[in-house]
Design a protein around this nucleic acid. Structure first.
Length: 130
RNA sequence: CGAGUCAGCUGGACAGUCGCUGCUUUGAUUUCUUCGGUUUGCGUCUCUGGCGCAUUUUGAGGUGCGAGGUGGAGGAAAGUCCGGGCUCCAUAGAGCAGAACGCCAGGUAACGCCUGGGAGGCGAAAGCCUACGGAAAGUGCAGCAGAGAGUAGACCGCCAACCCCGAUGCAAAUCGGGCGGUAAGGGUGAAAGGGUGCGGUAAGAGCGCACCGCGCGACUGGCAACAGUUCGUGGCACGGCAAACCCCGUUCGGAGCAAGACCAAAUAGGAAUCCAAGGGUGUGGCUCGCACUGGAUUCGGGUAGGUUGCUUGAGGCUGACAGUGAUGUCAGUCCCAGAUGAAUGACUGUCCACGACAGAACCCGGCUUACAGGCUGACUCAAUUU
RNA sequence: GGGUCGUUAGCUCAGUCGGUAGAGCAGUUGGCUUUUAACCAAUUGGUCGAGUGUUCGAGUCACUCACGACCCA
């Protein structure tokens, strides 16, 4: 397996994978058009799930475009990410942005997520040690 | 040249790197799993053998993994407006109700679609548009305005012949009034009960006649709708609205792949058979019919999730033949998305006309709506310009 | 994906059989009251979601489109 693949192992499949992330969303990163939720994964690699509601992005072409950009960005940056189950929710207005704008937004969110996960894991390690 | 009409095609191209997914070939025999053989041991029985359990080894297949090959959104995939296939409800049947359609003929699996023809309308033409059956079966509707709105109607106007009264007059007659006559003109309205002309008359009027229009009948042509420089006949009797009810003809059972089938954690709400009642439910109502609720007896049911349905089909392409055409028949050839938290993309480079609307979700046939541009063919030409 | 329904004043809703679109609340003005609220009176405000058609005339009838809501494993 290369460092840039995106097989079914790296996706969240079914409600069983999604529910823990929604219920105990330890890490949250958001902006006006995007919301990222994440929780520690059971697997030794990060996993991605997308929730793109028809209500928020009406046209199928726009929904497909957004999903492709988000998946592609995850695929390229997966080796940098901590081992989390990540759910990305689209909010209304995302479909109006250009592909370049969405790519920049999600890359900024990856960085934020790495920082947050790093800090909390440190504090947790300290608690465990003490 | 330019303007326009119709029909059809196309919907950025090429190269490299990375990525997703179906199918297929192949590798390693690492994960899980199904079926079969083999070795050894134990148990058991109807004991030269069979069966069961464990174990050894091996073959075939599935699944996951690696590598290679190959396929991977649309003309509208959309809206869900119609029609089918398919699936379940009884095998989808009978009557009523309801709905849809509606010039004629043909095509089709079927249609509200398509083709050809007719009629009416628009245009200079090519051509385009039309829910286009019946108002001489019935019931209705038409506010306001207007005298009158449907087997008509005297507001203004026109007339004063006939009849009656009065005045003048010898009388003829004239004037005024009454009883009236009149649908040509004005006015109202969306709509006022054929049109034009001549005759006729007190003034008028299909009252009469001619022509036009209309109705009915015949004849001719056409499968028919319908048409006619045809003939006869009727003074016209028959105004509009059925996207008002309705009548006539034709068609239609209901629901949908989230249909349905299979495997099945959890949980216990059960399932099958028999019996009684005819209340409740079912994908519109009633009848028939089916299932459930109730009681008894006997043992298995099926939510999350998964698998399947799932792509070879009224299929595409090419040719021949039949037909004005839609289309059909025959022959050859091809396999052309099948995802399921949901694939067909990202980046880089080059080129040009600098890329619109937009993403399959069971599958087809249509219709409708959205759409940057580009290409091809056929046809028309009034005015203007050359 | 499939099915069902809705759109009328700033808001919540009427509008039967086609004939000049109403009610309540809100707003504005005036009155009452020392003032506000309440009350009383008057008044403003509508391309009837968009377009096309039928009709003399459409909120209403028909068709096309847009937007919104709900249901089905």
């Amino acid at each position: 397996m290369s460092d840039f693949g995106f097989s079914k192992k790296l996706r969240l499949l079914g409600a069983a994978d999604f529910q823990p992330v929604f219920k105990n969303a330890r890490y949250k990163v958001s902006c006006q058009q995007l919301l990222l939720l994440a929780y520690d994964s059971d697997t030794p690699f990060p996993r991605l799930g997308l929730v793109i509601a028809k209500k928020n992005i009406a046209k199928a072409v726009q929904r497909n475009r957004v999903k492709r950009i988000l998946r592609e960005s995850f695929r390229h940056n997966q080796s940098l990410l901590p081992t989390l189950d990540i759910v990305i929710l689209a909010r209304s207005g995302l479909g109006a942005l250009t592909s370049e704008q969405i790519r920049k937004k999600i890359e900024r969110h990856w960085v934020d997520l790495i920082h947050k996960a790093g800090k909390t894991s440190e504090t947790r390690d300290n608690e465990n040690a003490g």
